[in-house]
């Protein structure tokens, strides 16, 4: 464990908590893409099946349980409890265009052709594009609530910190996982446009609104 990975995990945890609290307190999921949240729940489910097979550390197990619990709670709020506030007309990204290619790629490019490893690879590839429905929805509505932009900032920051963690681990431990690194780079690049808007607008107190 190094400071970059720990900060990355805490940033990820912050994002997940911010979103869940925002929806719970405002009793509304307006502006939130339910499709992205379903994809994240799928990412955690397929990646953390090893909760049932191996124990790595209390920290590792605790965080995985929190991630899975919060992501399913968020999906539950969006599609069940607060369904009336879900903005389905703007959440129209075709997720099958993500899941099918990612599923195929996981079968073709992986470290080991075993069920757990293929599911882990699928989850790594899926996570790198899971935010697309959310970004697409913001481009369609042309704006995002400020709290939603903070959620996206911490979510994007987490994988960027993981990239530094992988540089650190390669240099100090010789650890190197090409699949996670390439997917992490793609994932972080997808946030660049948003990061620019976040820094130039939200941090200056303006509302994030895209040129309609």
């Amino acid at each position: 464990m190094n400071i970059f990975r720990l900060t990355g995990d805490l940033s990820h945890l912050a994002a997940i908590i911010i979103l869940l609290l925002k929806i719970w307190k405002s009793r509304s999921c307006a502006g939130i893409s339910g499709k992205s949240q379903v994809l994240f729940a799928l990412v955690f489910t397929t990646r953390y099946l090893d909760l049932l097979t191996s124990f790595i550390s209390l920290y590792n197990t605790t965080m995985k349980v929190i991630y899975i619990g919060c992501s399913y709670a968020t999906v539950y709020l969006i599609y069940m409890k607060l369904k009336a506030t879900y903005d389905g007309n703007h959440d129209t990204f075709r997720v099958e265009f993500l899941i099918v290619p990612v599923g195929g790629l996981a079968f073709l490019v992986n470290h080991d052709f075993s069920p757990l490893e293929i599911l882990w690879t699928f989850s790594i590839y899926l996570e790198s594009v899971a935010i697309l429905p959310q970004l697409f929805m913001i481009s369609k509505t042309g704006e995002a609530e400020t709290i939603t932009t903070h959620y996206l900032f911490f979510l994007g920051l987490y994988r960027a910190l993981y990239l530094i963690n992988w540089i650190w681990r390669f240099y100090f431990e010789g650890f190197f996982d090409m699949i996670a690194i390439v997917a992490g780079v793609v994932q972080t690049i997808l946030y660049c446009d948003f990061f620019y808007l976040y820094v130039t607008k939200v941090l200056k107190g303006k509302k994030l609104s895209l040129p309609a």
């Binding site: 995990d9 790595i56 550390s57 590792n60 995985k64 991630y67 431990e173 010789g174 650890f175 190197f176």
Partner: peptide
């Protein structure tokens, strides 16, 4: 050499 330790990352 590049080793693939067990999946210890989240």
């Amino acid at each position: 050499e590049t080793i693939k330790t067990d999946k210890d990352e989240l």
